[in-house]
């Protein structure tokens, strides 16, 4: 069975995926997680989860190009350049960070 390990480096911080390994059962997985991810005090807590218990969702249809919903928003760099040209700005806009 494959187990996934998430580790927390400091109290209060989010758990971050550390890696995975094979183990015959949860007791072995706990022991191995301890040896692999906390032996050098690099973690204050671990989540040791059988991979099959993790629900993975990886299909997110975007048929209508609703990218305005995305948190990164629109890239306005190109539009800004056009707008500046129209406004008659002679100077280069330089980098605007998009």
């Amino acid at each position: 069975m494959i187990y996934e390990v998430f580790r927390q480096e400091r109290k209060g911080q989010p758990f971050v995926h550390g890696g995975s390994f094979h183990a015959p059962d949860q007791a072995f997985a706990d022991a191995y997680a301890r040896e692999f991810y906390a032996r050098r005090q690099e973690s204050v807590a671990l989540w040791v989860v059988p991979r099959e218990q993790i629900v993975e969702i990886d299909e997110f249809p975007d048929e209508f190009d609703l990218k305005y919903r995305r948190v990164d928003g629109y890239s306005i760099k190109a539009r800004l350049a056009i707008a500046r040209e129209r406004a008659g700005s002679a100077t280069s806009p330089g980098t605007d960070g998009g």
């Binding site: 390994f21 094979h22 183990a23 072995f28 022991a31 191995y32 040896e35 692999f36 032996r39």
Partner: peptide, 12 residues
């Protein structure tokens, strides 16, 4: 007998 045990037993 297997890699995970190799690491753990060596560590012990």
């Amino acid at each position: 007998p297997f890699l995970e045990e190799d690491v753990a037993f060596s560590s012990i």
